Simulated scan of single mutants.
Amino acid sequence: MNETKVMHLGQSGEFLWGRERGRELRSVMEENLQRLPRGATLVADLSAVAAMNYSVALELFVKLLSAWEKVYPERGFCLRQPSKEVAEEVSMALEHHGFLVLAEPRLGEWELFGKVSQADRETLQWAAQRTYFTAPEMAEALNLNLTTANQRLKKLESNAVCIRNPVGSRLYRYCLSGR
């Protein structure tokens, strides 16, 4: 299991409103991410957040993920226990801007919020059953060509859903964030 840092967003209040609050939270989250080593995951615990508006979701999650590949490579990110209302706001903001995010299992299954395709769901369902996996393993198991498997994994990696670690000159091993 990789290192995990949990950030309890509910400590900032039960109700999170406004762009300024979103910017403040993102700033703290970015400080936490800067300190995380490669291969680690930041978990945004939303269990004590009753409501969040679109502006906070936009400032916090969309802007964070938009810079992910360049600023936080090989690090993971996921949500923990968002309420239905919070999940809807986060999902709406992410979907509108073409991003997705991983949420830890609530009812035993990992979830994706945001702009999620059936291929993303299929990939997540398969990956969630493994601790580590490679693109060739996924291609074989899901009856995909290697290029398609790599494209699916690249999308998940660029949205911090999974973490890629080199295991050879041209082979990478992946794991879900938060594992």
Rank of each mutant, 00 (worst) to 15 (best):
Pro136Cys: 05
Gly168Lys: 11
Gly76Pro: 11
Met1Phe: 07
Glu111Ala: 15
Lys5Ile: 02
Tyr132Phe: 15
Ala141Cys: 08
Ala48Gly: 02
Arg26Asp: 03
Ser55His: 01
Phe113Arg: 08
Thr131His: 02
Glu69Gln: 13
Trp110Cys: 07
Leu16Thr: 03
Leu46Thr: 05
Thr147Ser: 02
Gln34Arg: 14
Tyr172Pro: 00
Val49Met: 05
Gln151Tyr: 12
Val90Ala: 06
Ser83Ile: 11
Leu64Tyr: 05
Thr147Val: 10
Leu33Ala: 03
Val49Gly: 00
Ala51Cys: 04
Ala51Phe: 04
Arg164Thr: 01
Ala93Met: 10
Lys70Phe: 07
Gly18Met: 15
Tyr172Gln: 03
Gly108Thr: 13
Thr147Arg: 11
Ala139Gln: 06
Arg130Val: 03
Leu58Arg: 00
Glu89Val: 05
Gln129Glu: 12
Asn159Glu: 11
Arg106Ser: 09
Arg164Ser: 12
Leu64Thr: 14
Phe15Leu: 15
Leu16Arg: 08
Ala127Glu: 15
Ala160Cys: 14
Ala44Val: 10
Lys84Cys: 08
Met1Gly: 11
His97Ile: 12
Val71Glu: 13
Pro37Lys: 06
Leu107His: 06
Ala50Arg: 13
Glu30Gln: 13
Gly22Phe: 04
Phe133Ala: 01
Ala119Asn: 11
Gly76His: 13
Glu88Phe: 14
Leu33Asp: 05
Ala67Pro: 00
Ala135Cys: 04
Leu153Cys: 01
Leu60Phe: 08
